[in-house]
């Protein structure tokens, strides 16, 4: 579904990604693991077009989308749940969710998407009029995921959804992600630092370190590869 070939990107004079290639297979969860500063977020942001790639190609459903601006990619069915909790703080929960249906394609499916979201996230149905900024951390993370689903993506990128959450909530968020993924038949590219839970959820894993892909394989292979675990995952 998504194929990245020799992607290079950076900020100003500083190059962050050095010819990375990866493949997110349709209907699966693919994960990108690595320490701080490895280039995980940069990979996601250049895939969506928030930053311009310096080189390489990005293919979405076989089409070259390397230089397309983000809003066009969202219209095509890609989206990203950015790192940190990017809710619209002064809008209500309901307004936040409805903003997700912003693109023309998504707004046509808005009613149907809303029913779907409310069954998946009952907590959001309970407090439609509450300001999003006053939700708890876990609820805000749920809201950003719900809102991204309103864009009706085929391909969803998640940037460290476990960040800053209590361990119990991390479990809940990942359960939700898994449920959503299988219910909606999504293709997911997950960026994480939480190794254990990622290896549980993902089918295929890439290890990113210092801007290059150091290892890749199915979750089981990575789990059992002594070298990879010691060198890059610290477990």
């Amino acid at each position: 579904m998504l194929k990245i070939v020799n992607l290079e990107a950076g900020y100003g004079p500083m190059q962050v990604l050095w010819k990375i290639s990866l493949n997110a297979e349709e209907g699966n969860v693919t994960a990108l693991l690595g320490p701080n500063g490895a280039g995980k977020s940069t990979t996601l942001m250049s895939t969506l077009g928030s930053i311009k790639p310096w080189g390489g190609e990005i293919y979405f459903e076989g089409k070259d989308v390397t230089t397309l601006p983000s809003h066009k990619k969202v219209e095509m069915g890609m989206t990203l749940v950015p790192e940190g909790r990017h809710v619209f703080p002064n809008l209500t929960v309901r307004e936040n969710i409805l903003m997700g249906a912003y693109t023309k394609r998504a707004s046509k499916l808005m009613k149907e998407s809303l029913d779907l979201i409310y069954t998946l996230f009952p907590i959001l149905k309970e407090r439609p009029g509450q300001k999003a900024g006053t939700l708890s951390g876990g609820q805000q993370q749920m809201l950003t995921i719900a809102r991204s689903l309103m864009t009706r993506p085929k391909f969803l990128m998640l940037d460290e959804p476990s960040q800053g959450l209590a361990p119990k909530l991390v479990g809940e968020v990942f359960e939700t992600i898994q449920k959503v993924q299988s219910d909606m038949g999504l293709t997911v590219l997950l960026v994480e630092q939480n190794v254990d839970i990622t290896l549980e959820v993902a089918k295929y894993v890439y290890i990113l370190h210092e801007g290059t892909i150091k290892a890749e394989g199915t979750s089981d292979t990575i789990k059992h590869s002594e070298d990879v675990r010691v060198a890059y995952l610290g477990i």
């Binding site: 983000s70 809003h71 969202v74 950015p82 619209f88 997700g100 912003y102 693109t103 991204s148 864009t151």
Partner: peptide
């Protein structure tokens, strides 16, 4: 309004 609230989030919703 979305971009006033959070520009990064507005962008991933498909706002130009």
């Amino acid at each position: 309004i979305a971009l006033r609230e959070d520009e990064d989030a507005a962008r991933v919703m498909g706002v130009n």
